[in-house]
Each structure stands twice: as C-alpha cells, then as structure tokens.
Amino acid sequence: MARDVGTRHGRQNDPERRDRIIDACLDVIVEAGVAGASHRRIAEAAGVPLGSMTYYFTGIDELLRDAFTRFSTDVSERFVARMAAAFDRDSARDAVVEIIRRDILGDRRELVLSHELYTLAARDRSYRALTTAWMGRSRAALEQHFDPQTARMLDALIEGLSIHRALDEDAHDVQDVHLAVARITADQ
C-alpha cells in the first residue's frame, strides 16, 4: 500500500509541516543563499525535527526545486493578475510600471530569491525549466496587450531593472521607469 505525502500509516501527520518547511527554505535562502541552505538550518527555521526533512523531501535538491517552484509561481500569478486587470494599452503600461515599482524595486526578499534562482539556473540546467516557465508566463501575460517582440523587450527591462536594483545603492526614480516603458511601447 502506497502512503500519501503527509500521512503515516493512514494517520494525518501535521498537514502543514511540508508547507512550513518550504517557507522556511525560502527564508533561509534569503538569509544565507542557496549555498547556506542545509537540511539542519531549514529544519531549525521551520521548527521541525531534522529527521522529518527526509520524510517530506528525498533530498535538498527536491526541497530547493519545490521552494523555487512555489516562489516563481506566486510571483507569476501576481504578474499575470496585474496584466489581466489592464483594460487598454495605457492601463497595460501602468501595470508594467507597477510590476517594476512594487514587485521588482519594492521587495528586497523577492529580489534576493529571484537572483538566487537565476544563479542556480545558470549553473544547473535542470533549474532552467523553472526560469523558462516563469519567463513564458510573464511574456504570455504581456502579450495580452503587446506584440511578442515588445513583450520580450518589456520582460528584459523588468529583469534588467531587477539586476540594477540588486547592485545599485541609489534609489530608482519611478519617472524613469515610466519613460522606459513608454519608449519600449511607443510604436504600439
């Protein structure tokens, strides 16, 4: 008889523990990077026994993959929702600016997690499927309002600004973001 994840011998076994471990994994990555994300450190952050880690995950790679999948899916869903709420070209431009302003320039945690995932995907081809799917969802959302080439350029602007945000100590002027989006979408 196969056992379900989160159950042992037919009994429910802390149904939220797996989610707590994934959330703790993301917190540890923000604090210490992927390199500092060990089973011991994550278990401690999640408040679970170290032995329970192997009950829910076959290894650190599965845990990292599940954590980054959750992260990229959550970010994508917000991105898609912002773009879906746009009702014309101008509101689509405003939505892109809000994505940049709030989600890229405004959230240090997401910035760090994004760059940790990018670095991991650059080194390990198996993680590239996550980043490729993430970019695909972003571009599909942008293509609701812009042609594919413009959507690709806007996506590159968003990613490029995230790099600048990670490395530049100076605050970013929102008017510059408006200007960049307007220039990229000018022929639309």
Rank of each mutant, 00 (worst) to 15 (best):
L157P: 11
I184R: 04
V177C: 08
H164A: 12
A46H: 04
A67K: 02
D74G: 14
G36A: 09
A2R: 15
D107S: 06
A2W: 13
D173A: 15
E143I: 00
L120F: 09
I158F: 07
Q144W: 05
F87G: 15
L167V: 14
A121E: 03
S76D: 05
H115V: 05
P148V: 01
S38I: 03
P148L: 09
A156K: 07
D27C: 08
D4H: 13
E159C: 10
R82M: 10
I100F: 10
E110R: 10
A2M: 14
I22T: 03
D94G: 09
I158Q: 06
I29V: 15
V181C: 07
G59R: 05
R139E: 01
I100H: 09
L130N: 08
I29Y: 03
R17H: 03
Q149S: 09
I100S: 07
R20V: 06
D170E: 12
E159A: 14
D19F: 09
R108K: 10
L179H: 15
D94A: 12
L157H: 10
R78Q: 11
D168C: 12
A35I: 10
G136H: 05
G33F: 10
E31W: 04
V28Q: 09
R65D: 13
R82W: 02
E62Y: 10
A156I: 10
G136D: 12
Y56P: 02
S91W: 12
I184H: 04
R20T: 07
P49M: 06
E62V: 14
D4F: 14
M1R: 14
G36N: 06
S126K: 14
G51S: 15
A95Y: 03
T7L: 04
V48E: 09
A35G: 03
R93V: 05
I42K: 02
D147E: 10
W134I: 00
R101F: 03
R11P: 08
G106F: 13
A67M: 07
F146S: 00
D74F: 11
